[in-house]
Design a protein around this nucleic acid. Sequence first.
DNA 1: AAACTGACCAAAATAACAAAATGGTCAATT
DNA 2: AATTGACCATTTTGTTATTTTGGTCAGTTT
Lengths: 198, 198
Amino acid sequence: MEIIAEKKQPDRRRQVVDAAARSFETFGYKGTTMDQVAKLAQVGKGTIYTFYANKEELFEEIMTGLIRELKQVADETLDAKLPFADNLMNVLHRVSDYRARHALAVKLSQEVRDIGTPMAKDGLEKVEKAIIGYVALHVKAASDKGEIRSCSPELTAYMMLKMYLALTADGNHLHEALSKEQILESFRFYCFEGLANR
Amino acid sequence: MEIIAEKKQPDRRRQVVDAAARSFETFGYKGTTMDQVAKLAQVGKGTIYTFYANKEELFEEIMTGLIRELKQVADETLDAKLPFADNLMNVLHRVSDYRARHALAVKLSQEVRDIGTPMAKDGLEKVEKAIIGYVALHVKAASDKGEIRSCSPELTAYMMLKMYLALTADGNHLHEALSKEQILESFRFYCFEGLANR
DNA sequence: AAACTGACCAAAATAACAAAATGGTCAATT
DNA sequence: AATTGACCATTTTGTTATTTTGGTCAGTTT
């Protein structure tokens, strides 16, 4: 009954979280001020501190939300009928794409690049770790099912993400940009098939 | 006779290059001043500018020297009797190790990390590109000989370096540090064998 | 009394300005 | 013809004044 009820009074916590989300994705971590969030949330500044001990905790809550979204996208992408390799590539592609379009992730990336805000870096690192953890879970499952060779799930997931990012990295001058098809084909080649002749 | 002779008069160009090398590796790109180099080289500042149009060109000369050293190390490491995979791993390991111990490379890495000097970044990028080019040459040879599957040499070399660096990266918290043996074993696994069951 | 607020504060960020250092030039010197 | 270092416009650094910020808490509202 606790969860279903509650309507009349404004849900302060939600107001704060929504305002914070908007502010962080518009102004970045550093550019967001607690006064600003309070004003956006139409809430006294002190109220924020009844829910979150400090700016960092508030930020973590927002990042947790982003991670939850990504997980949702990944889950929706998974198709039990497809082989592991296809699922993996689809998930990596959809999640990377979603991340690249998500205002918060974009803003934080730019902030890290331009001014190196440590908290923004931490936040994005947490996202990477979450992706790796998610992939590792499915690597383990595929490995247990004998669908792929046995391997360390964590390390393998890490390598997969790194390889995928290396192929999609367009900012660098180390190799020319690849089309989506080339990326997927190359990823399958380097990740699953390997260079060895057989 | 031009090359053999020359002894009496001091070789100004060499003095400048030596001084610059010492200065860049001690103080980094930004920390090196042309006055400093001139003093170290025991040469008037104007003299430097008779050899190099500006600080950037002087720096490029030094970086070219580093790349030449790395190529030397790589060439010494190559053993025609060994299979491609072994040569590749040996070269990557030795070159990375040499690079990690080379005062100039270390200083520039630190400079990029701490203050992001664009020229230092460019310089290190050039080193990476040289390594990729070197590896690509041997990938092509191995591919032509049928020792490995046919592939784009440039992209493959790029991926190999990225994979190796991902395995050796210890600064990040994405995976625990690996021993040298684990690195080589993992590299062989991910780069040559692939995850697919066979 | 429980939830909420915003004036308030120490600490940190920014702006404004003065002083020093730097890359590059070139007339004078060797 | 090769070399030099005083010189200069531009940046960078150091300094100090001013503003902004995260966080608190006594007081107000519900």
